[in-house]
Design a protein around this nucleic acid. Structure first.
Lengths: 154, 154
DNA sequence: TTATAAAACTTCAAGCTTGAAATAATTTCA
DNA sequence: TGAAATTATTTCAAGCTTGAAGTTTTATAA
């Protein structure tokens, strides 16, 4: 705190921001969870896994999934297990490296996800309806930069 | 929904915003959870409950807690159970209405929370360090308005 | 080659979470 | 008053989540 005319930041504003951010995402998440249950009889974690796989028709490793979704390995195992037993996803043992398996959407899973994704986008448009599109873009821009500082240390 | 010249919004920007929002809050939440575990041997849900109680020295009903924290009633029951068994919180049966009980921080709980809150504020300052304070204020303002539209219908 | 380490997963226990069903106490109102 | 509805909470099953420990397979290197 010697030199800079740093804008005397108490940090209180960041704390307030965090509380708002958390409340916003929890509120929206709760609403999405409820609608996914009601409309499609599925859950948000299953939707998230399917969304990731939908973007990668070639498939993803379990570890790709967990790092992309920011959840633990063991977590993904359980969710994929359930998706497999529902016929929405397959685990294909690979010849190259027998520790890994490629997870892919089945045809049924692809169809099911496409329907959910359309509804989902509509819901988000509705739930964030009060945020103007230009506001949305500027918020998105600010959120892009928030990490870099501390993430990926150690 | 008959008349309006609704501002032909594709919704794509809002979807992008939602994805950013979710990733930001999950990343921060994960980091907070880990630090609360390491530094204070506690969990985020317990911290949240204690934070709510800290703001209300007179105590809160179970239902106050669950609506404030945006989680289900049954959820709060379990968390408060654990906090009680750790001596951080008390459930006081009320004379007026014997269905309800006032939940309060114990003296030990108050002291413990004060220490955690100080660390927590510092962590948030660090984790959101890349967001300028003026940005933080403007983001907070935008997030304030996002609901109202759909929340509290039905 | 063959021990050792590393990588990719799975398993497990403990705790969080929801939504539905059950309890118990209070209110409403016929 | 007393039945019915409402309110506050707990209980429970199923699923999500983490972090630690275990398994199997692959890579490293003495």
């Amino acid at each position: 705190m010697v030199a800079g005319p740093l804008p005397a930041s108490s940090g209180k504003d960041r704390l307030r921001l965090w509380i708002r951010l958390l409340r916003a995402s929890r509120t929206i998440e709760a609403e999405l969870r409820e609608r996914l249950k009601k409309e499609f009889d599925t859950t948000l974690p299953r939707f998230d896994v399917m969304a990731a796989l939908y973007r990668s028709p070639e498939g993803m490793l379990m570890s790709d999934l967990s790092s992309f979704l920011l959840v633990s390995n063991g977590n993904v195992t359980g969710i994929v297990d359930r998706l497999v037993s529902e016929g929405l996803v397959t685990r294909a043992r690979r010849n190259g490296d027998r520790r890994t398996s490629m997870v892919r959407l089945t045809e049924e899973g692809t169809k099911a996800f496409a329907a959910m994704a359309a509804a989902h986008e509509g819901w988000i448009g509705e739930l964030l309806g009060n945020v103007r599109e230009d506001e949305a873009r500027s918020l998105t821009g600010m959120l892009k930069s928030f990490r870099s500082n501390w993430e990926g240390r150690e």
